[in-house]
Each structure stands twice: as structure tokens, then as C-alpha cells.
């Protein structure tokens, strides 16, 4: 059976997250900022008595800021190494089946995308960029240092 993918929109672009990694999709209401934390950490939020570390995908991709002022944001909740993260996305669209293994994109991408992309996968809705959530959560700084 082929891998399921969650299609989300980040920075206006439709990309795929591995659905197995996504625990749930939530709407974030409040956001507690974390002073001095890396840029891409938008803050903390609570979900069912768990603390979520909210990642601003726009900043993680160095594509600008997500405007959080209007309140409710959609986010994908992901568990990584025992910590729960919420990735802020523009929109959660659909779940589709991957029709191929990820293959390398041979054209030059923007550096932010380049860092988090696992490759290109074929779906019924056409080719989509598969995102490595670990890299997305790690953000630009950590990646640059490594």
C-alpha cells in the first residue's frame, strides 16, 4: 500500500506532508510567545492538556512571517522525539495516496524549500513536493550550524 500524504498550503504553495507523521489537524486559538527562542518558533499553545510548540513554517522556510494577528490558524500537529509541535500552514486541503517514491527535483529550488524537501512525489493531483517535517521543525539556524 502506498503512503498517504496530507496536502497543505504553505506560503501559497501546495506541498505534501507524510500523513503518518501528522497526529491531527487543529485550529490554534491562543499563542504564548517564547522570548529569545529561535525565529521560527512562533510560541506555545495548549492542546488537550499538552503543550504544543508552534512552528511558523513561513519563517522556517525563510519566506517571511505568517500573520497570526487574526487569531485562528490551522496547524498540523506532529510528534517528534516526545515533543509535540504544531506547524502553522495556510490551509489543510486533502489526503491523497502517493503514486511514486519521492524523486529528486532537478531544477533549482529556493534555498528554504531546498532544505526541507525530501523530493517530488506523483499523486492523482499532479506532482507535489514532499516535506521533511524534521527539517521544517529544526528551522534555518540549527540547519545552518550543522
Amino acid at each position: 500500500m502506498n503512503e498517504l500524504l496530507l496536502i497543505v498550503a504553505i506560503a501559497g504553495e501546495r506541498v505534501a506532508l507524510p500523513a503518518a507523521a501528522v497526529e491531527s489537524v487543529v485550529e490554534l486559538e491562543t499563542l504564548t510567545p517564547v522570548p529569545r527562542a529561535p525565529q521560527h518558533v512562533a510560541g506555545l499553545s495548549a492542546l488537550r492538556s499538552r503543550v504544543l510548540t508552534v512552528i511558523d513554517c513561513m519563517r522556517s522556510l525563510e519566506l517571511g512571517d505568517t500573520d497570526c494577528s487574526d487569531g485562528i490558524r490551522e496547524a498540523a500537529v506532529i510528534e517528534l522525539d516526545g515533543h509535540h509541535y504544531a506547524l502553522i500552514v495556510d490551509q489543510v486541503e486533502d489526503v491523497v495516496e502517493a503514486l511514486s517514491e519521492p524523486v529528486a527535483v532537478r531544477a533549482a529550488m529556493e534555498p528554504g524549500w531546498e532544505r526541507v524537501a525530501q523530493g517530488m512525489v506523483e499523486t492523482e493531483q499532479g506532482p507535489l513536493l514532499l516535506i521533511d517535517v524534521t527539517a521544517l521543525i529544526a528551522g534555518p539556524d540549527v540547519r545552518a550550524a550543522a
Partner: peptide, 9 residues
Amino acid sequence: PAAPAIMAT
């Protein structure tokens, strides 16, 4: 414990 990125501060 907070996420590693936060603990790193």
C-alpha cells in the same frame, strides 16, 4: 521539558 529549540535558549 520544552522542545529542544526552546531549551537551547
